[in-house]
Design a protein around this nucleic acid. Sequence first.
DNA 1: TTCGTCATGTAATGGGTTACATGATTAC
DNA 2: GTAATCATGTAACCCATTACATGACGAA
Lengths: 196, 196
Amino acid sequence: MAILGLLNQAPMHGYELRKRVLVLLGGFRALSYGSLYPALKRMRENGWICVPDPADATRVLPADAPPLTGKRGKVVYALTAEGKERFQDLLTEGGPEAWEDERFGVRFAFFAQTEADVRLRILEGRRRRVEERRDGLRASLGRTRERLDRYTLELQQHGLDSVDREVRWLSELIDHERVDGTQIDRKKNNPPASTS
Amino acid sequence: MAILGLLNQAPMHGYELRKRVLVLLGGFRALSYGSLYPALKRMRENGWICVPDPADATRVLPADAPPLTGKRGKVVYALTAEGKERFQDLLTEGGPEAWEDERFGVRFAFFAQTEADVRLRILEGRRRRVEERRDGLRASLGRTRERLDRYTLELQQHGLDSVDREVRWLSELIDHERVDGTQIDRKKNNPPASTS
DNA sequence: TTCGTCATGTAATGGGTTACATGATTAC
DNA sequence: GTAATCATGTAACCCATTACATGACGAA
């Protein structure tokens, strides 16, 4: 999704993509080349992305052509129509896939392009998820507080504080969304315009 | 390390181990069976853990024996001498392996059994690591603040706040360690007693 | 007696990383 | 000219998950 979303903003080559993904996800850790390039290959085989001919932008290089052995240059990728469609589909998903830890970050990074109702659904789902974790942690901490050594206690407490903070953050975002949402709802009586 | 450390506290069977690991790591996510049991198998082959005969605790079941097909019971694992040694070695590690994200949590969970100087080294390494991330994030945020949409900004800001909080947490722990450390150093002029 | 949870395990699969190999371009 | 970084890719590997298969035990 990160790749599709970035290519949706502008065509670019793999190396550039890698740096952008890194920033997008908060500089936590870069995608390795051994992961990035095969992914691009697969996406190309799936027809989601293509390599426009630099000499003639109306033409697209065939999917199996350009090893360009010996002299490799930059390979600029662009989204195809299917790729855009696929990205739009991902943008519409509002189920658990969108709020579990692995994807929430990427999902959130493209919130500006996500419909208001989907945003709200994801934020609420995420909050429920994090609240569950918080309650579990709180319960376990309450049960075992006496038996734990200083460090384990410290670790669990810090973990609890962290999820607590995340819940508050999400709640603020949700409140904000609700305010914006009602404002918009009052303005438009027609279905949400698909601003593609 | 989690498995070795838990078995170092008391022998137990796989299922129990799984629950304990979950609590140890802050309830984030349980180890899957497909990961746990093969790991136990490997550790047994390595001679780190063994299965004492329930009928006669002085005897140990051979490593290849107990599929017990048809009627399987609980398989209680215990650390061997080599296993304890291996765990002690892990406890002594104070390099990057100990402060990178993947291991710091587990490492910290066994701090009560870790020497004071190793603890300090790990905490300082960890802090450096998180500070680096914070500075990178801050710089990137400063550079791109104007061009970012509300949500990306919100995400990066929240990330920055999180690492900031972690740095403060680590600093408090380090201060605390330093105070305790000097107190202990004053008391004992002899090398640190190995309180095994 | 049936449902939930305890309990152990394997096989297929997926997704990532590391290490390697190559070469272009830029800055000093 | 040479070091750093840009740039693309492959192959081997590691490690975890999912899905599956089996069965014991306690409570309703």
